[in-house]
Amino acid sequence: MLITYLRVFVVGGSICLIGQVLINTTKLTAAKILVIFLLSGVVLEVLGIYQHIIDFGHAGATVPIVGFGSLLAKGAMSAASERGILGAIAGGLETVSVCLSAVMVAGLLSGLIISSRTKK
């Protein structure tokens, strides 16, 4: 139990640590950091490596945006083998649809209710 959480912590923390090194050394903005990590998730999934990282790190590997990328690629690849070209096109979006729809609903709702506040 505890060892699982330690693994989650170390894997998730290490991914973020790599991101921080990138930010510190290259001055990339948040959007570019997210793109780079998402893409690396897609690539690692296509190469078949990321599943091993998930097996080891559990949420430590799925919660970072890298996991989101691997989910996209995994969905597209499995749908492609089942349904051919249409599956290849739709599969990625299908797997992340829950998360995406949720974030849009959340965004619109909070945009209706809340205004941003100044920093102190």
């Binding site: 930010i23 948040a30 941003s116 506040r117 920093k119």
Partner: peptide
């Protein structure tokens, strides 16, 4: 601060360093 920040940088509630 808040007009300059949104014009030249990021939304106020975005978590950036």
């Amino acid at each position: 601060f808040s007009t300059a920040e949104r014009q030249f940088r990021f939304p106020l509630e975005l978590g950036t360093q």
